[in-house]
Amino acid sequence: MNQANFRRLLARNSYLFALLLLIVVVLINYSRQDNLFDPSVLNRNIRVFLPLAILAVGQAIVIIGGGIDLSVGAMVSLCNALLVTWITPETAGGDILLAIGLVALVGMAAGLLNGIAVAYLRLQPIVTTYATSFIFAGLALTILPRPGGQLPSDMTGLYRRLIEVEAFANIPIIQDISILREIPPAFIVIAIILLLWAFLRQTRLVQYIYASGDNAEAAYTTGIPVQRIRLGTYVISGFFAAMAALALTMSLGSGSPTSGDAMTLDSIVAVVLGGTRLRGGQGGIAGAMMGVVILGVIRNIISFYDVPTWSQTLVDALIILIALAGPGFVRYVSDLIRRYRLQGGRAA
């Protein structure tokens, strides 16, 4: 009975396993790094994780809708290249906002290309987005052949520096919690995304995304515009890729034509770690963001546990593999237990 409840709980809250895993890896990290929760250390960590976290949100939405987007990393590279080309240390505030707006449009246009090919031309998502990734990567290389560019230091500071909340400085208890007095900007971004999702989760649009990913034919027969929904998920993914590029550019302060290329697979791994299955129709974005933090913290653990140089890559991969296999293993064991009990029942 308890088991059935637990399973239902897991099914409804796909991120539960990720949350558990997150707590475990953070504790393991903390056991070797006691300054982990210092605001400045936390800020350094989370601002590195944020670009991938934003990217994974877009990826999760595509996957929930029954697709996959292998071009997100190249989109980040493209948008990163555009941002450092359009914004220089002398650029005025208004023009910076204009550039950011344009980059968001570029990301959405790139997503639109993917969406049309997948939803209307009915091409395989994996192959299509793999192919378009080369278009975006190629464009990035044309726009910014050499790494370079520089963002205004005010702009990078906004992203990199802690936000001091002076209002909390005199309130008892709160003034003792350093992380509330000095908040990493990335936390605010994550909070906004989660709140927005909590709100959208109730809307018909997001319900349609889940329905289309779960069973496209059934969704179609009930009158859901599956093609438009699919198209929409890719456009959303493109938008998030542009925002991930913005975060990455503000984090690094400069651009490189290949800056995002390695992020594609990590975004998918993070989504799966977060409890979203690749077949679609299920999962969420909170888990995907937890997945990103888990991936990052695993790297910290390797660093702080003095894993020998020559086995760092191996250990990194093994931990990720174990983490990915975790839910399946739990399911397998609980199945075994249940079967054993059933048999025991019959014998008695």
Binding site: P51, L52, S259, G260, A262, M263
Partner: peptide, 9 residues
């Protein structure tokens, strides 16, 4: 610290 990684890494 020696792993295959990108700039963020």
């Amino acid at each position: 610290e020696s792993t295959d990684t990108d700039v963020s890494g």
